[in-house]
Design a protein around this nucleic acid. Structure first.
Length: 373
DNA sequence: ACACGACCTTCCGC
DNA sequence: AGCGGAAGGTCGT
């Protein structure tokens, strides 16, 4: 092996690792579609494409596989180097972008619209999926200044950002998430794709599938099929919700909710069977462009009680009123992108990431039960 | 408005 | 080895 990038099929794109850490971002339970098949190398599906991703401190490397392309050679294309645009201004008003991290050129696609190269679409996909127009470094700074607990935790968990997911996959994935754990949710999402999704292509001997279209999940026999597949009571939620959407709305309905007022989106989602406040907030945050949405689950409840709202320790259960209080508290503390900040603390709370804390720091989760003999 | 129990199945810890 | 409880909740009472 002579080159550092064997295969030469990898394309790269400048992204500072402080702006994006794929290892945590892709595995923290917002998307259930990514796997680290080789150390540092992640494979997953974005819409109708299979992507491989890996990164260094300054660059994100990627390969894309589509239907009809072989897994040996991804689409051949000439290199397009993003122009260094220092003055790329953040779309959110008052933030001054002073980071030295390379930033993607925002207008690239528009300028080349007349003759779109594949690269442009790929870069656009990355920018959109990872929401790279949002300056995460600046947000971490802002959250840290407002909240010393965030400051302490976040030093061990840099680069965690919200993905901009597809609403259909996002909704049904999180209907599966209720009273469930990440490993099982992951396998259930995979079962949905393998059984009811369209083939994309084979990569490294493995076939990949799209997330199924809603109408496929709305068929009459789906509930029983899902039960047979081990979905439990969520089988009904999935089938009922699919039928409701197909019967009452257009294909674009979910997408049309994007960007509407937060309360309206949440209310519309909560009409769906199996979608309560928490799942609705997950969808709001992860695919509906509602960065202030705070899904309050058992982790967030514990975090809030432990560090932020002492009175939660004496409440019996999470009532609707307390649920809203917790969200409002964090929005007041962290601001417009409170949901993004929440995901950093949520990730830090996951058991699978406990070893990421600096060794000197106290790991709250370990109950200091016993010492190993 | 709040409290409780049922709900499918798997994983984890003791 | 096997059991009880929890797992990124929701729904009905």
């Amino acid at each position: 092996m002579s080159g550092k990038l064997p295969g030469s099929a990898w394309k790269s794109f400048p992204v500072c690792i402080k702006e994006l850490r794929i290892d945590t971002t892709l595995a923290c339970g917002q998307s259930f579609r990514w796997k680290e098949l080789k150390p540092g190398e992640w494979t997953g599906v974005i819409k109708d494409e299979v992507w491989k991703l890996k990164q260094t401190s300054t660059e994100l490397f990627y390969q894309v596989f589509r239907r009809g392309t072989s897994d040996i050679k991804p689409v051949i294309k000439k290199e397009i180097l993003p122009v260094a645009t220092e003055k790329l201004k953040d779309s959110s008003k008052k933030r001054k972008n002073t980071t030295t991290c390379p930033q993607p050129p925002k207008k690239l696609l528009l300028e080349l619209k007349t003759e779109p190269f594949i690269e442009d679409l790929d870069i656009k996909t990355i920018q959109d999926y990872f929401q790279l127009n949002i300056n995460l470094t600046q947000l971490y700074k802002q959250w840290s200044e407002a909240d010393s607990n965030f400051e302490e935790i976040s030093t061990s968990f840099p680069g965690i950002r919200m993905l901009h997911q597809d609403p259909v996959e996002n909704l049904f994935s999180f209907i599966c998430s209720s009273n469930n754990h990440i490993s099982r949710i992951t396998s259930m999402v995979n079962l949905l794709c393998v059984n009811f999704g369209e083939e994309i292509c084979e990569v490294d001997g493995q076939m990949y599938y799209q997330f199924p279209a809603i109408y496929k999940l709305a068929a009459d026999d789906i509930e029983q099929k899902l039960r047979d597949l081990g979905f439990g009571y969520r089988a009904k939620y999935i089938n009922q919700t699919s039928k409701y959407i197909v019967n009452n709305h257009t294909n674009e309905w979910l997408y049309s909710l994007r960007g509407l007022p937060y309360k309206d989106v949440k209310k519309a989602l909560m009409k769906l069977c199996g979608v309560g406040a928490k799942v609705a907030d997950c969808v709001c945050l992860m695919s509906m462009d509602q960065p202030g949405s705070i899904p309050v689950d058992t982790h967030v409840w514990q975090i809030a009680a432990r560090h932020y709202i002492p009175k939660l320790n004496v409440s019996k259960s999470l009532t609707d009123k307390l649920y809203d209080e917790i969200g409002d508290y964090f929005r007041g503390l962290w601001g417009e992108y409170a949901g993004w900040a929440h995901s950093v603390l949520f990730t830090a709370d996951l058991k699978k990431f406990q070893d990421k804390f600096d060794s000197k720091k106290k790991v709250k989760k370990s109950k200091s039960k016993t010492k190993v003999k």
